[in-house]
Design a protein around this nucleic acid. Structure first.
Lengths: 143, 143
DNA sequence: GTCAGTGCAAACGGTTTGCATGTTT
DNA sequence: AAACATGCAAACCGTTTGCACTGAC
């Protein structure tokens, strides 16, 4: 959890640079996101944050996630009716969610690069790759 | 609205074939969907239905849409946080929603065919093309 | 007559917001 | 001290559900 302190500090520094205040709830949310293995719903973030600081409320988590997203430090995406999933902004990639096991995978940006190019040339549509959410059935659940 | 009576009848016939009852609310929902120019939210469907039959309730519309979807007569998709959009099932295609004007476009299935093929070969992921919902900025809003 | 379908109202899950209080700067 | 961030509870929106009643078969 504290292994990647550098990454957390980068995020906190960006907050400082934008004149945002560094608070305990924010530290906890950032720590959770940095330590997250995969994409988390707001509720999952809240639960993990509350292991560290039980008093942090869900609404605060939502507000922090929104602030981080405004600074392009965090990205969220939707899949089906389900709750949105959040993760630290990293390299550009697409999301794909299995309708059976509900796990969200990242797929290489190559595939989406091509898709984006085709949409632009065929329809003049500028794809927001960070917000991609495709549904389907993953390899594991197909067998 | 009544121009495409054939299409409505096809839908109603399918309902009959599946031992479903043909009711006034169902007729109205089907009529609205057949006459729809683009993709409608459940709320929009309800509003249009209520122009014909003011007493039809939103929950009934949801139930009818669900029934039609179970019979593969209707398809819905999601884009961002927004409400789901419904439309009659037709040829396979993908959806793309503009984050600025909130209009949902259909894009040719070629683009999605290729995407589906790539996802299958790279990740073993079986894309559900009917449920695709991509976000971005449309040609009109980019200018 | 039977049972699926309906209207209503209440419940629901995820998210947002108003406000009084607490904390960072 | 001032401004911002937080906790709580209530509101919100889209959707689902329980129940008594109606209407299609």
């Amino acid at each position: 959890m504290t292994i990647d302190a550098t990454r957390s500090d980068q995020v906190l520094d960006t907050l400082r640079r934008h004149a945002k205040r560094i608070t305990e709830p924010k530290r906890a949310v950032v720590e959770v996101l940095v330590g997250a293995d995969d994409h988390l719903t707001a509720d999952e973030v809240t639960q993990r944050v509350q292991l560290l600081r039980p008093d942090v409320s869900p609404s605060t988590v939502y507000r922090i996630l929104e602030e981080l997203e405004d600074l392009a430090l965090v990205v969220h995406s939707h899949a089906g009716h389900a709750a949105a999933v959040y993760h630290l902004a990293g390299q550009s990639h697409g999301h794909v969610t299995c309708v059976i096991c509900h796990v969200t995978f990242e797929v290489s940006s190559d595939v989406f690069d091509r898709l984006a190019r085709e949409l632009m040339s065929s329809d003049g549509f500028e794809l927001d790759r960070h917000h991609v959410a495709l549904s389907g059935i993953c390899q594991h659940c197909r067998s």
